[in-house]
Amino acid sequence: MSDSTQPTAFLTTRWTLIVDAVSGNDAVARDALSLLAGTYWLPLYRYARRKNKSREDAEDLVQGFLAHLLEPHCLQELDRSHGRFRAFLLASFNHWMINDWKHSIRQKRGGPERPLSLDIDSAESGMKIDPADHRSPDRLFDREWALALLDKVLVNLEAAFNSEGNAVQFSKLRSCLTSASARIPYSSLATELGISEGAVRVAVHRLRKRYRAQLEAEVARTLSNPQAVEDELHSLFAALSNET
C-alpha cells in the first residue's frame, strides 16, 4: 500500500488542506488525496459489504466514491464532520451510497475512471472471522480503519528501515512494539542480532520512538486539528477493544 511515488509535499499535511487544494484543482494534492484514500479504502469496502452490497456493487461503490472524491468542486458542500477524516469519509460515503451511486455508477462502471486497483480478495479475507458479528457496520468501520492505519504505519516503518539497510533489525525487533519492556528478551535479541544488550535497548527505544512519531503523524494527517491526536488514538483504541 505504500507508494514510492507519494507526493512528499503532502506527506504530513492535514487532510483538510489537501481537500481544499483538490477543490482548487491542484494535481499534486489530488495525488495526495488519492494516496490517503488508498490507505483507507478497505474499511469503506467492508462497510459497504456489511451493508449487504454484493462484491461487485461494493467495489463499484468504493471506486465511484473515490473517483468522485478526487473531482474538483464536489467536496465543498460536504460536512467536514468535526475535522476527522475518518468521520468525513464515512459520512461522505454514506451520502454517496444513498444519493449518487444509482445515477453515476452505472455510467462509470467499466469506464476509465477507476482510480485505485483494489485487492478485493484480500479485502474479503478479513470478513471471514466475524461471521456472527452483531456490532453495527459503523463500529466495524472504525475498527478496520484502525487496522488499516496501523498497517500503513508499520509498512512505512518497515520501508524506512529497509531503505537504511536495517531490515533484519526491524524484523527481529518489531515484536517489541507490542510488549511491555519487562517482557522483552533483550539478552536473546542481543545474541540474535550480534550486538550488545545495551545497544538492543537503545535500538528498541528508537524503534518505539519512530513508531510513535509515525503513528502520530499518520493520525494527525487525518485530523484538521493536530492537537486532537490523543483523542483520536483513544477512540481508535476503544474501537479495537470492543471486539471481545
Binding site: 484502525a146 487496522l147 496501523l150 512494539l177 511491555a180 483504541f237 477493544s241
Partner: peptide, 8 residues
C-alpha cells in the same frame, strides 16, 4: 493491533 495502540 490493540497492544500496538496501547503501547503508543
Amino acid at each position: 493491533p490493540k497492544c500496538l495502540l496501547r503501547q503508543a
